[in-house]
Write a protein that binds this DNA or RNA. Structure first.
Lengths: 180, 180
DNA sequence: TATTATTCAGACAAGTCTGTCTATATAGAA
DNA sequence: TTCTATATAGACAGACTTGTCTGAATAATA
């Protein structure tokens, strides 16, 4: 009964890359199976529908994002500022494609609750990270920093530039200094 | 040589509604002409391609957004805080569909420069608004408030709720009080 | 050995999409 | 009147989409 993960894994890896790079609706099943070198029936053997594959993609992205971030900040002194450096690295690697989760929002109808829920959970996790790292008297500080970080993602995607990230990082530095 | 604006206007109005509500790639030409009650040849008489219609849509949204905002804040005492109220009104009217401009980003390939440019120009305008309204010693304050406003849009779209807008508005209040 | 799980290639169905084209009609301007 | 601008309905081309299905092959397990 041992499951062969080879094929399933290849599909998920390729789908993750393409969904992120091109968008969900802009990526067809046929492109995925071609680049993953699998038969169409194999894809539908592992994933009942394209939407199911999308859910798996979101869960995978969530894991990878968290793990990569944890690894990245492990030896950094200031974990909060390190997240901005992490974003800049991601921007370079992914050509300023922005956030996989937020990118999905506009192109799925609000009826697809499960997808929406995955996106929400991811962002709750990001906020939780800042809440855990930022101690202080001001209860709004974590949400403020989270919001600035989120706009760093968006703005760098929009202008295809690291400059907004650097600027918002500096802003967060002085915010923390003033309220820490 | 008088141009009949009836049909062109109807197309643009319907396209504006549908692109915003459903997304660009999720809205077909056939749906537009059906709801606008025009012939397909009429659409292609006024707009060479669907992308051209999209550009017109963005320009229209930009105008309408600016005009509606100016009208909304005209009699308000605090123009900055009024923008957050404006957002809440927009959220209710458009069912938390978020920003027409940002929503377009994920689903158009980076090669479509003109669309990207329209989105960039709109956001530059939003930032310029905060820069004009916020005077003070801190040169980063307008960009900070702009970033918080942007995340108010995103967050309320993501969670289909006004709560983030209210919270970020309160945060901006104390930020301005501290730095004004 | 027999059974079951997994994979393959690719045809196919049924629908969507953008954009073109034909052919006709109407109204205003030259 | 003749020409041009604008409008109509709708067929059509060609390419795409997701998902199903056939039929065969392989590999692990009972």
């Amino acid at each position: 009964m041992q499951e062969n993960l080879e094929v399933r894994e290849r599909i998920l890896t390729v789908a993750t890359t393409l969904f992120h790079r091109q968008g969900y609706n802009e990526t067809g099943i046929n492109q995925i199976i071609k680049e993953a070198n699998v038969a169409k029936a194999s894809l539908y053997y592992h994933f009942a529908t394209k939407d199911d594959l999308c859910i798996a993609y979101l869960k995978r992205r969530h894991e990878v994002w968290n793990d990569t971030l944890q690894e990245f900040i492990r030896d950094k002194e200031d974990k909060i500022l390190a997240v901005f450096d992490f974003l800049m690295e991601d921007n370079e690697q992914c050509n300023y494609r922005g956030c996989s989760f937020l990118n999905l929002l506009p192109e799925v109808p609000p009826g697809k609750k499960e997808m929406l829920s995955e996106v929400q959970e991811h962002k709750k996790g990001v906020l939780a990270f800042f809440e855990a790292e930022i101690k202080g008297s001001d209860p709004d500080l974590p949400f403020t920093v989270y919001s600035l970080f989120e706009n760093a993602i968006i703005e760098s995607q929009l202008f295809q530039s690291q400059e907004p990230v650097l600027r918002l990082k500096r802003i967060v530095v002085s915010l923390l200094r003033a309220n820490g």
